[in-house]
Design a binder for these strands. Structure first.
Lengths: 258, 258
DNA sequence: CGCACGTTTGAGCACCATCAACTATAGTGG
DNA sequence: CCACTATAGTTGATGGTGCTCAAACGTGCG
C-alpha cells in the first residue's frame, strides 16, 4: 500500500477507480456516472452494499462521481437532503455551526467513509462537509437509496447499521469529551486514525494528518496550542514522532493506554 | 396537564394507559400484552407510528408493557438486541461504560421517548438503561419491528428518522461539551428539559429533576460540585428558583441566551 | 433519634485557555 | 534563485475555570 502512495498516478487511479479518460469527464460542473465495479475503494466502501446489484438484486444504485477541491463543500448546512456521499479519495471534515458563530467539527471522513447521514431526520443537512484536500466523492441520490431500501432488505439493514454506527461513534466522542484529559484525547484521536487507516489498508503506524492543529482542537474540544503541546508531550514520552503533519507511531500499545 | 399531576391515580392511568385491573397483569416477571389504543401517551409516543396498524397496514406491533423499578435496568450493556423500548411512564438514564470503570450518561429518556437504538449497529446494547424512578416501558420486539419495517415503507422511514434524530441530538451534545462553559451547559440542560416537558404537555417552567447532581454532571461532563455551583449561580442571577430537585424557570428567554 | 445520603459551600490547586513571541513552511513574484 | 509574505505550528508566561479535598447542612428513612 505504501508503494502506491509513492506512485501518485497509480494511487490516484486506484482510489478513484477512474482511468485518465474517464477522469476527464468527472468535474464539479458535470458529474459523470461511474460504475462501482471499477472502483478500487469498493472493497472498503461503506456504501458498497448499497451500490452493487446482488444476485437477488438486479438494479444497482446509479453512482455519480464528483470532484471536490480542497476547501470546497460537499454539502452545506441547511441544504435539502438530495444525496448521501462516500469519499472515493480524500478526507473531509463535518462542521456543525452554532448560533453565535461558534462551530464544532463533529468528525473527519477518510476514503471509503460515508457522509451526510445527519440530514435524514429533518430532510436538511445539519452539518456541512468541507474537503480538507482534493476529493472524489460518490454521489448517492437519496431517493434511489430509499427506493432500493424499500425493495431490498439487506440495503435497509445496511442503512440502519450505518446510522446506528454513527450513534455509537458519537457516543464514544462524548465519552472522550466528558472524561478524558487533553493528552488522553489527542492520544485517542491518533489511535482512532491509526485504526481507521489500518482498516483501509494503509499503514497504521505512519500517516499524514490532513487537518490542521486548529481543526483537531475543534474536534476534540480544546485549543490549537493545547493540541500542539500534547503532541510535543507524546513525542517527549517516545510514543510518537512527528514532523509537521507526518506522524509516526512508535508505541501503539502504549498510546492506547494513555 | 398540571391537574393530572396532582391526581396520582388518574395521572398513572393516563401515562400507562392501563386500568387498575390491567395494571395487575403488568409486572417485571410476566409482561402483558397491551394495546397501543389504550395508551394515554400514544399521541406523544415516538414509537406510535410503528405500533399502530394504519389503513394500509393490517398488522400492528404486539406491544408488551413491563414495569421497571427505580434503579433497575431496562437493558444492560452487552445484552443482545432483542427489544427496543419506549417509556410509557418514568425517566431513565443511558449509561455508557468504559474500560477503566469510568462511565458517562449519554442521555435521559422521558415518558414517550425511545430507548435502545444504540444496539442496532452491533446487535448488542452498547449502553445500559437504568430507571431513575419506577417506570412502565413498552417492549417492542426488534424482530417484529424489522418485519414491519420490511413490509411498510412508513415504518422504515420512521426508524431511519429516529436513528438520525439521535445522531443530531448527540451532535448537539458534542457541541455543548466542546464549546460551552459549565454555566452554559447547565442552562442548556435545563432549557432542553423544559422543551421536552413542554412537548409532552407538562409545564415548561416548573418540573422536578429525576436525576441527581452527580448524574447531571456525568451527562454534561463536569463534577457534581460544579453542577451545584452553577445552579446556585443561575438562581442568584434570578433565572431559576430551585428547592432540592424542584425547578422553576423564572426567565426562560434569558436562560436560552446564557 | 441517629444514620446515610445528597447537596451546598469554601479553600487551594491543576489544567487548560489566553496572550504573545518566535520558528518553520509554503507560496508568490521579482 | 532569493527575498517577501502569509499561514501554520511551537513554546513560554500568566490567569481563570473547574477539579479536589473538606466541612457543614439539610432531608429522608430505619
Amino acid at each position: 500500500m505504501e508503494t502506491l502512495q509513492t506512485d501518485a498516478l497509480a494511487f490516484s487511479e486506484f482510489m478513484t477507480g477512474l482511468t485518465p479518460s474517464q477522469d476527464a469527464r468527472v468535474s464539479s460542473a458535470a458529474p459523470a456516472r461511474v460504475p462501482c465495479e471499477g472502483c478500487g475503494a469498493r472493497r472498503l466502501c461503506q456504501a458498497a452494499q448499497l451500490c452493487r446489484g446482488g444476485d437477488d438484486r438486479p438494479v444497482s444504485l446509479p453512482v455519480c462521481a464528483r470532484k471536490v477541491k480542497a476547501g470546497e463543500a460537499v454539502y452545506r448546512a441547511g441544504d435539502p437532503l438530495r444525496n448521501l456521499y462516500t469519499s472515493r479519495a480524500g478526507t473531509s471534515k463535518s462542521i456543525r455551526l452554532y448560533r453565535d458563530g461558534r462551530q464544532q467539527i463533529t468528525g473527519f471522513q477518510l476514503g471509503g467513509e460515508f457522509l451526510g447521514m445527519d440530514a435524514i431526520a429533518t430532510g436538511r443537512h445539519q452539518t456541512e462537509a468541507i474537503a480538507l484536500e482534493d476529493m472524489v466523492v460518490c454521489v448517492l441520490p437519496y431517493r434511489e437509496i430509499e427506493a432500493l431500501a424499500d425493495a431490498y432488505t439487506d440495503v435497509r439493514r445496511g442503512m440502519e447499521r450505518m446510522l446506528s454506527q454513527e450513534i455509537v461513534r458519537e457516543a464514544g466522542l462524548l465519552m472522550l469529551m466528558g472524561n478524558l484529559s487533553a493528552e488522553e484525547r489527542v492520544a485517542a484521536f491518533l489511535v482512532d486514525l491509526s485504526d481507521r487507516y489500518a482498516e483501509r489498508g494503509y499503514s497504521a503506524l505512519a500517516f499524514t494528518l490532513r487537518m490542521s492543529r486548529e481543526e483537531i482542537g475543534s474536534h476534540l474540544g480544546m485549543k490549537l496550542e493545547t493540541v500542539s503541546r500534547m503532541f510535543s508531550r507524546l513525542q517527549q514520552r517516545g510514543l510518537i514522532a512527528l514532523h509537521g503533519k507526518d506522524v509516526r507511531i512508535l508505541d501503539l500499545p502504549a498510546l492506547r493506554l494513555v
